[in-house]
Structures are given as structure tokens and as C-alpha cells.
């Protein structure tokens, strides 16, 4: 029992905790996932031969570099899922942005301008999704399935079977490189800034409370004064914007603009988010959980890769991980509901 002894009537039920803070933290789904992440890395170091070859920095920097596109995509996508919507087009927006950057550079436009164009194309894609969802009033699932095909189709149509690979080597070296002596990629610094912005936005601002409120109940949120459609529109635009940015970074990291860039990334991002304890029904979850989910998948992929399992097995495992994580969430929800019913009966 914590500090409420001595007060005649506790002010609020929510301030009463029967367990100390460290136990409550340990019981959160994020804690289990962090544990699983550490376990995967430790077990890989011990069990997988050549895991730390040629050195530990190399292993972890490639792990992080592979994870970064997904880590970018999942920041706004997590917020969208908390409102109860979904954006399945993120991987295609990444590809469209990548194609834009590639074609712009090929046409002789300076790289910085090309990069801005890529981000703007992403934002425009987000505006299209957002307007169709909020103004026209269509379900986000249907809209983004359509634009998933549409944006990918445009990227493939524009580039055809060509790959644009001539980007300035010093730039691509920066985007695929790490801070000397550490496994931390330069790109990760951009991402950390963005992650802090999104974390503050979701967890510490009225706008963020509104996001959770929308996920719990759109009606209640509306009557509480949340501008529901404005919030949803902003989130879709942010999602497009960040996916556009991720497309620019991805292109420069791999020095390659092809039509299939980012194919299937929506699966990996959604899996990371759901795995991180964010409810697919909306209204529940933490950004840190989603991020750990992304890192967990990346670590798992890396271990399997070093172990010699091909990329295709990784698709199977990601798909199964997605299903297992929602099934576990569903069963956990069922058990906790039943406990609540029993508690209220007792």
C-alpha cells in the first residue's frame, strides 16, 4: 500500500495503487517486450555463430539501419491506430517518395530540392488519405487499401523496371554510416528528435489526450470538445509527411530508387505497433511500446539473417508474429474483462 494511509476518503480511485511502482512498471506489456528484446539479443550473442562478426558495432549498426525505415513509419501510424483508424499506405508512400527523389535527381535537380519534393509528395499523399477519410467520410481501411495500390502503382509506373542509383556518394555514405566508434547510425539522431516530438505530442499535450479520447469513443470525444476530424486529418497528413521523409532517407541509405522500395513495410510497422501493446481497436497504448516492438522485430530479423534464414522466412515470421500478438491481446482482454466481471460480482 502506498501513500494514501491517513486520509479518510481517498480522493480518487485512480490514485490508489495496491502495488509499488516497480511492480506496476514490470506488469506493463512494454516491460515484457523489452525483456523479450534483451533476450533475443543475448541469446543471439550466445547461440548464433558469427553474430558479433566482424565486430559488435557492425552488428548493431546494421540492425538499427534495417530498423530505421520502420521506426520512422510507426511514429505517426501508432497515433493513427490509437484513434481507431489505420493507414495501410505508408509503405507505398515511402516508395512513391523514393521514386520522386530518384527521378528528380536523375533530371538534374539538386539533391536538397529533390528531398523536399519527396517529403512534399508524401505529405500530399497524406492529404489525399486524410481528406477521403474525414471530409468524404470513408473508412480509413478502405481508403488506404485503395491508395496502397494507387501510390505503389504510380511509383512502379513512373520508374518501370529501372533503378536510379547515382546519388552523391558522400551523402549516401552519411545516411548508411554510423557515428564513428559507436553502433549508432547518423540517421537515428534525426529519428530520436522526431520520436521525442511524437511522444510529447501523444502523451503530454491536449491534442494527444484528444487522440486517446477519439480511440475510446468518437461521440464522447466530440462532446468533450475534441475536434475529431481535424485531429484525424492532421494525423494522416503527418503520416504521409513522415513516410515521405522516410522515403528520402531510405533512398539515400541504400543509394537506390526502385518501384518496390518499402514494399510490405505497412505489415512490419503494424506488427511492431500491435506487438508493442497498442490496441488495434484504438484508445490504448504507448509510443515507447510501439518503438520497442519495432526494435524487437528488427532484432529478430537480424538474428535470423545471421543464422542464415532467408528474407522469405522473415516474412512468414513477421506475419505470424502479427497474428500471435493480436491473438494474445485478444485473449488477455478477454481474461481481464472476465476478472472485472467477477470482481464486480464479488
Amino acid at each position: 500500500m502506498t501513500a494514501t494511509t491517513g486520509q479518510a476518503a481517498p480522493p480518487s480511485r485512480y490514485l490508489l495503487h495496491d502495488k509499488p511502482l516497480w511492480r506496476r512498471l514490470l506488469l506493463r506489456p512494454e516491460a515484457a517486450l523489452i525483456l523479450a528484446l534483451v533476450l533475443v539479443v543475448v541469446l543471439s550473442i550466445v547461440l548464433v555463430p558469427h553474430y558479433l562478426r566482424p565486430n559488435a558495432n557492425y552488428t548493431f549498426s546494421t540492425l538499427l539501419l534495417n530498423a530505421i525505415p520502420i521506426l520512422f513509419l510507426l511514429l505517426p501510424l501508432m497515433l493513427i491506430i490509437v484513434t481507431g483508424d489505420i493507414d495501410l499506405s505508408v509503405g507505398s508512400v515511402l516508395g512513391l517518395s523514393s521514386a520522386t527523389v530518384g527521378l528528380a535527381v536523375q533530371a538534374g535537380i539538386p539533391l536538397l530540392v529533390a528531398a523536399v519534393m519527396g517529403v512534399l509528395v508524401g505529405a500530399m499523399a497524406g492529404v489525399i488519405n486524410g481528406v477521403l477519410v474525414t471530409v468524404v467520410g470513408l473508412p480509413s481501411l478502405a481508403v488506404t487499401i485503395g491508395t496502397l495500390a494507387l501510390f505503389r502503382g504510380i511509383a512502379v509506373g513512373l520508374l518501370g523496371t529501372t533503378a536510379i542509383t547515382d546519388f552523391p556518394p558522400e551523402i549516401t555514405k552519411f545516411f548508411s554510416g554510423s557515428i564513428p566508434g559507436t553502433p549508432i547510425p547518423w540517421q537515428l539522431l534525426f529519428w530520436i528528435v522526431l520520436a521525442i516530438v511524437f511522444g510529447v505530442l501523444l502523451h503530454l499535450t491536449p491534442f494527444g489526450r484528444g487522440i486517446f479520447a477519439i480511440g475510446r469513443s468518437i461521440e464522447t470525444a466530440t462532446f468533450s470538445g475534441v475536434n475529431v476530424n481535424r485531429t484525424r486529418l492532421i494525423l494522416f497528413v503527418l503520416s504521409g509527411l513522415v513516410a515521405g521523409l522516410a522515403g528520402v532517407f531510405f533512398t539515400l541509405q541504400y543509394s537506390n530508387a526502385i518501384g518496390s522500395n518499402g514494399n510490405g513495410f505497412e505489415l512490419r510497422a503494424v506488427t511492431a505497433i500491435v506487438l508493442g501493446g497498442v490496441s488495434i481497436w484504438g484508445g490504448r497504448g504507448t509510443l515507447i511500446g510501439a518503438i520497442v516492438g519495432g526494435l524487437f522485430i528488427a532484432a529478430l530479423n537480424k538474428s535470423l539473417q545471421v543464422f542464415g534464414v532467408g528474407d522469405d522466412a522473415i516474412y512468414v515470421i513477421t506475419g505470424v508474429a502479427l497474428i500471435v500478438s493480436v491473438v494474445i491481446a485478444s485473449i488477455a482482454g478477454f481474461i481481464s474483462r472476465r476478472r472485472k466481471v467477477q470482481a464486480s460480482v464479488a
Binding site: L267, G319, I323, V326
Partner: peptide, 10 residues
Amino acid sequence: LVITLGTLYA
């Protein structure tokens, strides 16, 4: 959506 997205890839 989530289940069949998973099985799509699986």
C-alpha cells in the same frame, strides 16, 4: 484486416 494481413505474408 490484421489477421488476413498477417496470413497474406505468412
